[in-house]
Amino acid sequence: MFDLSWMAWTWQTATFFAVIALLLAGMTAWEFVRPGGAPRDGVLGLHTTRGDRLFISLLGSAYIHLAWLGLIGPNLWWALALSIVYAVLVFRFV
């Protein structure tokens, strides 16, 4: 078996990457079921597919977490909730 100790895995980071992988797998399945990416012009005037919307959601969520850490504190549950609301809004309107 490969020795992956140099990667210093923790269950928290493994969960994080597993969620990302699941999201990507889900998006792939969605694309197979409904091909074309559902392109549209959203409220920001951007032409986005659902892959773009996922990217905007993830990148925005990362910044929400960083801003929460830098400005408020280390308890990130509210940042996570805010990110989920943000992602829903992105998928709905952007």
Binding site: W6, W9, T13, F17
Partner: peptide, 11 residues
């Protein structure tokens, strides 16, 4: 991924 793993740990 390794960098992310390092970023939440002390060594």
């Amino acid at each position: 991924m390794t960098v992310v793993n390092y970023s939440v740990q002390e060594t």
